[in-house]
Design a protein around this nucleic acid. Structure first.
Lengths: 137, 137
DNA sequence: CCAAGTGTATTAGCTTACTCATACGCTCAT
DNA sequence: ATGAGCGTATGAGTAAGCTAATACACTTGG
């Protein structure tokens, strides 16, 4: 069971959202393989010392996003293929929004465009490296 | 008074946050000049049919971010120079986080990197165009 | 100096969001 | 077919967030 992390009770981010964030990252970085089963809601709940329902809520949201899949009575798994949840128009709209968010933050922080570009490329390389590393193992 | 907009009551985004968003955009796009005075809290509040306190809250947050400045008893103005609100480490941390957000969203939506790059460059060009247009007038 | 303008602070009501307790329904190995 | 595992649904209590009402404090022009 490769999903291990802990929560920050001090953080003002809700528990279920912290869980979502961790799972997202684990899948994207390849620590959770495609098709791999996630811990049962009660198991992860006990490990995190929260109510099973809170974990279920996190799972549910990720299922709606298409990142996870639920086989009722069996368990929750990382989706094999990213199923098409959003229309193409919606996808583009979301990408635009995300980019706009980044640009506004960058402008607010007074970062020039090259810095943004550089950070983007750098993080992308890091992600790719992590993924290929995982595959080699 | 070049700050004119309306709210979306249907939206689940809180009013004060919508106001923040609009002001940010207006400043970034140059519709609000640096140093320009914003509408008094009561004036904007009446125009938006909300409580003055709600507007004040939006102003307050933008002041804490360094985008606006308040001269007590006089009014609220767009900051002349972006004062250094965050340490350099904090600035970098925030930029990293914003970029990570974008990349995760892009991966979730199954967009390849070139698409992200293209959208970034395109939006940047749009912003620049708006700014230079404003200056010419 | 004072009145009309401005931002600010405090408090309260209400809604939403979050978390939990509990009970239910499904699947599969035995 | 039955029990141990799993995800799911419902309701309730608590905390947090949002908006508003009201009163206070500062600046400036007359």
């Amino acid at each position: 069971m490769s999903l291990v992390f802990s929560l920050s009770p001090a953080s003002d981010i809700p528990i279920y959202r912290q869980i979502i964030q961790h799972i997202r990252r684990n899948v994207i970085q390849g620590q959770l393989q495609l098709g791999e089963q996630l811990p049962a809601v009660r198991v992860l709940a006990e490990s995190l010392v929260v109510n099973p329902n809170t974990v279920a809520r996190a799972y549910g949201e990720l299922i709606r996003d298409g990142l996870l899949e639920s086989r009722s009575g069996v368990g929750v798994f990382v989706a094999e293929e990213m199923r098409q949840v959003f229309s193409n128009a919606e996808r583009k709209r979301r990408l635009d929004h995300a980019v706009e968010q980044l640009l506004h933050e960058a402008l607010l922080l007074d970062f020039p465009l090259p810095d943004v570009r550089a950070t983007l490329e750098e993080q992308w390389k890091t992600l790719q490296a992590q993924l290929t590393n995982r595959r080699k193992k």
